[in-house]
Structures are given as C-alpha cells and as structure tokens.
C-alpha cells in the first residue's frame, strides 16, 4: 500500500495577524501540512498561525521574504516533504489553485510549477502593477531564458528533488528572480499553471512599489558580484 503524499505549504509572513487565520484555514481544508515562517513580526502573527494549525518558525528579526521562504523550505524537507508549495500570507492567492499546481508536477513530470496570473486571472490589479510585473517578467526572461508569463508570483509547487536544489541567498524580494535563475542553472523542468490573484486594499498596501524594482535589480547585481 502506498503511503499518503506528504505535502507542505510554506507561508512566509510579516505582520499578517489580521489575515493569516483565513489563509491557514483554507490551506488546512485541503489537508496540507503548513509551516508559517514569522519573519520577525511585531504583531501576533505567530500566535494566530499556531492556533489555526500551522507549524510556526520565528525569525528573531525581520530578514525578508526570500530568507523566510528558505527557512520554511528547509523545515519542510526536514519533515520529509514529498512536495513543497509556497503561498503569500496576505490572502491574495487562492489555496484552491494548489491542487492544480501539484497535479501539473505529476502529469507533466516537472520539478517546478509556478502560478501565472496572466494565464489565469488578476482580480483588481492596478495598471501600474501590471506595467511593473511586465517589466520584471521581461527582465527575468532575458536573464534566465525561461519563457514564462509571470515571473514574480509567490504561489508555486515543487518536488522534493527541486526543493533540495534551491538555495535562496536573496533575503528580500529578489528571490523570485533568483529561484528562476537556479531552476535554469540546475536544469529543473518548470511548467506554468493559470492561477487567480486577488488584489485587495490590504494586499496592495503590503505590495511592491516601483522603487522596490530598482532594489531588486541592485540586490541581483550585488549577488552576482558576491559570487
């Protein structure tokens, strides 16, 4: 008899106490194991996440989303994960998309499944955000050669093999490009899956700005020089 698949979802969170309960409850409804990485929040994010059924890891201070993701991935691997998924804590992603991401891994033999709001739906996305994401996608296509339509989407699924090969060093938001660069250099197979991203006043308030895009570029350049 084959054992049940051990699917973990990594939720990096920073001051998300107001919304984290809903996010975790929706994930729990699918039967996933959840690890919430509290990235040095000053509110009750960790307490709420634990109460609603997530394993909780707490960074002693804020390190950035990339660092939180890597911490969560490391934990999921230690817990014997067969698949590792990631999803933002601000509620903009739909947990119902995760089964299709995992199915894409199984059916297409891929190592990585990344969500695309441009193949799916982007509810309430402001025009400025569309322009910024378009530029980021173009940049990542040029630097990685991966023909993806949405390169900065936080909802992903990966096999254990892929998770073991990813080693994020970009602590902040440049990790999204870094993951794709590592996928490319490791020769991992990647597929895109249509997903829905819903923008709310809350998620937009926590989202990226134009100046963040320049910071991402600077972080990536520094990363190249460091290596």
């Amino acid at each position: 008899m084959s054992r049940a698949r051990n699917i973990w979802v990594v939720v990096p969170a920073y001051n998300e106490a107001d919304v984290i309960a809903g996010v975790i409850s929706r994930l729990r409804a699918h039967g996933y194991r959840i690890v919430c990485v509290d990235d040095g929040s000053s509110d009750d994010t960790a307490v709420v996440a634990e109460r609603y059924g997530a394993d909780v890891l707490v960074h002693p201070f804020n390190l950035g989303q990339g660092a939180a993701l890597q911490t969560g991935i490391d934990y999921a691997l230690l817990e014997g994960a067969d698949y590792v998924c990631t999803l933002d804590a601000d509620g903009q992603h739909d947990a119902d998309d995760l089964p299709r991401l995992i199915a894409a891994l199984d059916e297409q033999g891929a190592d990585f499944a990344v969500g695309s709001r441009f193949l799916g739906d982007a509810v309430g996305m402001p025009a400025g955000r569309r322009v910024m994401l378009g530029a980021a996608t173009m940049f990542t296509r040029l630097t990685t050669g991966l023909a993806l339509t949405d390169t900065h989407n936080g909802i992903r699924a990966m096999t254990r093999r892929a998770a073991e090969r990813i080693q994020l060093r970009q602590e902040r938001m440049a990790h999204a490009s870094e993951i794709l660069m590592q996928i490319r250099s490791s020769g991992l197979a990647v597929v895109e899956v249509p997903v829905t991203v819903s923008y709310t006043a809350y998620s937009l308030g926590k989202g990226q700005t134009f100046s963040s895009a320049f910071r991402v570029l600077a972080d990536l350049a520094a990363g190249v020089l460091r290596s």
Binding site: S25, L57, V58, P60, L63, T71, D74
Partner: peptide
C-alpha cells in the same frame, strides 16, 4: 537566525481548526 528558528520550531496546536 534560520538555524535558531528551526531549533525552536513550534508544532501546530490546531485548536481553532
């Protein structure tokens, strides 16, 4: 910081769920 977080992992209580 990551090593510290992993060492002090808190398992889910899941009361609400």
């Amino acid at each position: 910081a990551r090593a510290l977080a992993l060492l002090e992992a808190r398992k889910a209580s899941g009361d609400e769920t």
